[in-house]
C-alpha cells in the first residue's frame, strides 16, 4: 500500500484532472506575463472615456471590461493565483490536522479517542458556511480566513476516516511485532502507521482543494472576502453588484464560474483516481 502515493495515471479522468491542474499552475506562476493589464487598473478608451462595460474584443480587451473599467481577462488570470493558493494551503491543513487527529485517536484509543471523536461530533454540528461568514466578519478581511475556518472545522471527515483506518492497522502483525520488540509509540506511528494512511490523506486533501476554492468564492461573493486580492469569487460579486445579470454581460460572469468548475472538478477526477488505487473493489 505504501507504493500508492503515486499519481493515478491509469485512469483517463484522473489524467485529465492532472492536466487541468498543470494548466492552472502555469497560469498562476506566469500571471504577470499572461495578463494584458494590471487587474486593478482603471482603464480608459482611446477617446479618454472610462472603458466601462466594453464587450470582448473591443479596443483589444480580450474578455471586455467591468463596469469600473477593469480588464476581465487579466482578473481571470490573476484569480488563478488566489484559487491555487487558498485551495492548496487549506487542503494541506485539513489533511494534516485530520490525519494527526485520526492517527492519535485510533492508535492510542481510550479517553484520547473519546475526547477527539466527541470533538469531531461537535465539528459536525457546526454549520460550515455560516461559521466562515461570522469568522470572516470578526477577523480582518483576508484570504486566510477561509483556510483558518476549514482547518478549524473540516478536519472532521478526514479525522474519522483516518481513525478507522488506523484501528485496523494497529492490530496488524508487524505493528504488534514492532511493539513487542520495544519500538516507541512515536516510531511505530511514523514508520508503520503514517505511511499507510498517507494515501487516504491525499484522497481527502484532493477533495478539500475544491471545497476551499468553492468556499472562498462563496465568501467573496457575499462580500466578506479580501478586497485587496483578485479572486474569481470577488469577480462574480463585482458582476452581480454591477447589474451584469440584467445587462446580459455573460462575458463577465460566465468565465470565472467556468474556471471554478474546471479546477474543482479536476480535484474530483483526481480523487476518483486515488479511490481506485485505494479501493480496487470500485474498479470494475
Amino acid at each position: 500500500m505504501m507504493g500508492s502515493i503515486r499519481l493515478p495515471l491509469h485512469d483517463p479522468l484522473a489524467v485529465i484532472g492532472l492536466g487541468i491542474y498543470l494548466f492552472f499552475i502555469f497560469m498562476a506562476v506566469f500571471a504577470p506575463y499572461i495578463a494584458t493589464h494590471d487587474p486593478n487598473e482603471i482603464l480608459f478608451t482611446s477617446e479618454f472615456a472610462l472603458a466601462a462595460d466594453l464587450t470582448p474584443g473591443t479596443e483589444g480587451y480580450i474578455l471586455g471590461t467591468t463596469t469600473l473599467g477593469r480588464d476581465i481577462f487579466s482578473q481571470i488570470v490573476w484569480g488563478a493565483r488566489s484559487a491555487l493558493l487558498i485551495g492548496l494551503t487549506a487542503a494541506f491543513m485539513v489533511a494534516l490536522i485530520g490525519s494527526i487527529v485520526g492517527i492519535v485517536a485510533g492508535y492510542f484509543g481510550g479517553w484520547v479517542d473519546t475526547v477527539l471523536m466527541r470533538l469531531a461530533d461537535v465539528a459536525f454540528g457546526i454549520p460550515f458556511l455560516p461559521f466562515v461568514i461570522v469568522l470572516a466578519a470578526f477577523l480582518e478581511p483576508s484570504i486566510w480566513n477561509v483556510v483558518i475556518a476549514m482547518a478549524l472545522v473540516l478536519w472532521r471527515d478526514t479525522g474519522r476516516v483516518i481513525r478507522s483506518q488506523t484501528l485496523t492497522l494497529r492490530n496488524r502483525v508487524y505493528v504488534e511485532a514492532a511493539r513487542v520488540s520495544g519500538s516507541s509509540d512515536l516510531k511505530i506511528i511514523l514508520r508503520h502507521i503514517a505511511p499507510n494512511v498517507l494515501p487516504l490523506s491525499f484522497l481527502y486533501g484532493s477533495i478539500a482543494i475544491g471545497w476551499a476554492i468553492l468556499t472562498e468564492a462563496s465568501i467573496s461573493f457575499l462580500g466578506f472576502g479580501d478586497p485587496d486580492s483578485i479572486s474569481w469569487g470577488y469577480m462574480l460579486q463585482d458582476a452581480f453588484a454591477s447589474q451584469a445579470l440584467s445587462k446580459g454581460s455573460y462575458y463577465w460572469f460566465v468565465p470565472p464560474g467556468f474556471l471554478i468548475i474546471l479546477i474543482v472538478s479536476a480535484g474530483f477526477f483526481i480523487s476518483r483516481g486515488y479511490e481506485q488505487i485505494l479501493f480496487p473493489k470500485l474498479d470494475r
Binding site: F240, G248, I261, R272
Partner: peptide
C-alpha cells in the same frame, strides 16, 4: 458520471446567477 461530478463542482450562487440572467432577465 463526469457530468454529475461537474455539477458538484459548481458554485451554487453562480448557477443561480446564470439561471437568473437567462430565464429572468433574458
Amino acid at each position: 458520471v463526469p457530468l454529475v461530478l461537474t455539477t458538484r463542482a459548481m458554485p451554487e450562487f453562480w448557477l443561480g446567477m446564470l439561471l437568473l440572467a437567462v430565464f429572468s432577465f433574458g
